[in-house]
Design a protein around this nucleic acid. Structure first.
Lengths: 221, 221
DNA sequence: CATCAACTGACAGGTTTATGTCAGTTGATG
DNA sequence: CATCAACTGACATAAACCTGTCAGTTGATG
């Protein structure tokens, strides 16, 4: 499992869109450069849009994101998720069909609920293993919408278990790994949690309002 | 890779809906019963609807399949695939949304092309690894629709490479593993190919017609 | 209560996979 | 042509995983 974690970490490092040398990444993650080169192979083979240039470094080349759609929020989520998966994982024909289908449904349903659909961004990378930790997702999604605080029990990669209260802000999908961006009241800072590492998630009666410095807009990865 | 193959084989064995003892499966696949029990754990953890009863045996408990939809064939395929994945892999809310979305889209688009959509059946089991062998799918799908013969180069699990001409009939999705059911002119019998093990697939100018005994309806797994 | 077959835990051996080291090559750039 | 950093192949070692064996337990059924 450690290797998968590291692949995930590499993507997090590359997310800033800047250049990164294999050596720097290697030092950060405490592995050899050879291992990073091997990992890059794996990422590329998994469809992660990363490119290396000799003498320069590595950089993410594109960040896929689908526009919001005119559906109920739940349907929109299902459609976004399903089409994002199809558009990434399947063959070119299906990819085109998935995109045209989103357009078509978008045009056909004349609702005005473009809504808070930008809680969802997709950057679908089809690696990593099966459906873990999906159990908490209804709770998490509901809490984001209701601006409800959450009490999380979380196991970090180093197997440390912590309990904390957070303000959930945003979820992202990284190819079968979901992350929950939030303001953590324990650390008094922004924290990104991997949904599959969340042990328990309990919605608290306590609501929160956006405070300057604690909104999603203030978050800089 | 051998373990994944065996898991896939177990599903194939259980597909007939009958009872199977761990011991029988173990003998068929030439492993110990202990290994079968471990495999069953893995399958259950992966979402395969199999149940064991003490003193009785193992049996598949349900076979998920989504109804055809009123869209263009390509869109229908994309929607089917996407919603099947969402309905299986994601949480209950999203599952319900995926189903209601298929209904809604079905109602909204008044086309008459229910068509040959029953080429698709879904039994989505989210195990196995990433997107391999999707490259041939446009060719395969097009050939099924056009009733066009295919020339396949295929590597069996035993690493034997064969080249053969087939009549493609039907595709199924087993959680990131696609299978192609076809009439094989080399063996003169029905054969099920794993799409990820297909090396090359070349559509031949030769068309075929349904002959008694060689149609999908005649195929008994 | 005997039987059947699913199920569990522990351990040992074997195989596969992951990693580091080293000694290169390649392609772009100044 | 020197430099930079991506890249490759080979090999040894270490870690992880898979499997079989064994000695049980459990739950349903006749």
């Amino acid at each position: 499992m450690r290797r998968t974690d590291r692949l995930f970490d590499i993507i997090q490092i590359l997310r800033d869109g800047k250049l990164h040398r294999a050596q720097d990444i290697a030092e950060t993650l405490e592995v050899s450069t050879r291992t990073i080169y091997r990992d890059m192979d794996t990422l590329v083979a998994s469809g992660v849009p990363v490119e290396g240039e000799r003498g320069v470094g590595y950089m993410i080349t594109e960040a896929i994101s689908l526009p919001p759609l005119n559906l109920t929020v739940a349907e929109l989520e299902a459609l976004n998720l399903g089409m994002a998966i199809v558009a990434e994982a399947a063959d070119p024909d299906l990819k085109a069909a998935a995109l045209s289908l989103t357009d078509k449904v978008d045009a056909v349903l004349p609702t005005k609920t473009i809504a808070d659909a930008d809680q969802w961004k997709f950057a679908v990378y089809p690696f990593a293993d099966a459906a873990r930790g999906f159990a908490h997702m209804p709770t998490l999604r509901a809490a984001i919408r209701a601006k409800q605080k959450l009490r999380l029990t979380y196991t970090s990669k180093e197997a440390r278990v912590t309990t904390r209260t957070i303000r959930p802000l945003h979820m992202e999908y990284w190819g079968r790994i979901w992350t929950l961006t939030s303001w953590c009241e324990l650390r008094n800072d922004f924290r990104v949690f991997r949904v599959d590492l969340i042990q328990t998630a309990e919605a608290l009666p306590e609501l929160f309002v956006d405070e300057p410095g604690k909104t999603l807009a203030d978050y800089v990865p």
